[in-house]
Simulated assay, not measured.
Amino acid sequence: MDGDRFAAAAARLAGLTGAVLGWRPDEFWAATPAELAAIFDALAPPGAAPPTQGDLTRLRERFPDG
């Protein structure tokens, strides 16, 4: 992942944690990837599977802006 894509993905994830969890930016940047994954796993519906590569490809095709 190049720097621009990483920055865009991080900004979206930071916004999501702010909206859903009420986190401030310093709380987001202090969290580890494992902590973020655990939180979003807990918020997922029971039995929900993570998206497959095919799911991600279809989403990218439907929403090419990122």
Results as ranks from 00 to 15, higher is better:
Ala11His: 13
Ala11Phe: 07
Asp41Trp: 08
Ala44Pro: 00
Gly3Glu: 15
Arg5Phe: 14
Thr52Phe: 14
Phe6Ser: 15
Gly54Met: 12
Phe63Cys: 10
Met1Glu: 10
Leu56Gln: 05
Arg62Leu: 11
Gly18Arg: 03
Ala8Gly: 06
Arg24Lys: 10
Arg58Glu: 15
Leu43His: 04
Gly47Trp: 04
Leu43Met: 14
Ile39Cys: 02
Phe28Ser: 06
Phe40His: 03
Phe40Leu: 14
Thr32Asn: 00
Gly47Lys: 07
Arg58Pro: 04
Ala19Met: 12
Pro51Thr: 05
Ala48Thr: 12
Asp65Ile: 10
Met1Arg: 04
Arg5Asp: 13
Met1Lys: 13
Ala14Asn: 00
Thr32Arg: 01
Leu13Asp: 07
Gly18Gln: 15
Pro33Gly: 11
Pro45Trp: 14
Ala7Ser: 05
Leu59His: 07
Glu35Val: 11
Val20Gln: 01
Thr17Gly: 04
Ala10Gln: 08
Arg12Met: 15
Ala48Ser: 12
Thr17Lys: 03
Arg12Phe: 11
Ala10His: 07
Ala44Glu: 05
Arg12Leu: 08
Leu16Phe: 02
Gly22Ile: 13
Pro64Ile: 12
Asp4Glu: 14
Phe63Thr: 07
Arg60Cys: 09
Ala9Leu: 14
Val20Met: 00
Phe63Asp: 11
Val20Lys: 00
Leu13Gly: 08
Arg12His: 15
Phe63Val: 10
Arg60Gln: 12
Gly15Leu: 15
Ala8Asp: 10
Leu21Asn: 01
Arg58Phe: 10
Pro25Cys: 08
Trp29Leu: 02
Ala49Gln: 07
Trp29His: 07
Ala9His: 07
Ala7Met: 07
Gly66Gln: 08
Ala19Lys: 04
Val20Ala: 01
Glu61His: 09
Asp26Glu: 14
Ala7Ile: 12
Ala14Phe: 04
Arg58Gly: 10
Leu56Val: 11
Pro50Phe: 08
Ala38Phe: 03
Met1Gly: 05
Pro50Leu: 12
Asp26Asn: 02
Ala48Cys: 11
Gly54Ile: 14
Leu43Ser: 05
Pro51Ile: 01
Asp55Trp: 05
Ala19Pro: 02
Pro51Gly: 02
Gly3Asp: 15
Ala30Thr: 03
Arg62Asn: 13
Asp55Tyr: 03
Asp65His: 11
Asp2Met: 15
Ala19Tyr: 04
Glu61Phe: 13
Trp29Val: 04
Ala48Gly: 06
Asp65Pro: 05
Arg5Cys: 11
Ala37Lys: 07
Glu61Gly: 05
Ala10Phe: 08
Ala42Lys: 11
Ala38Val: 11
Leu16Ala: 07
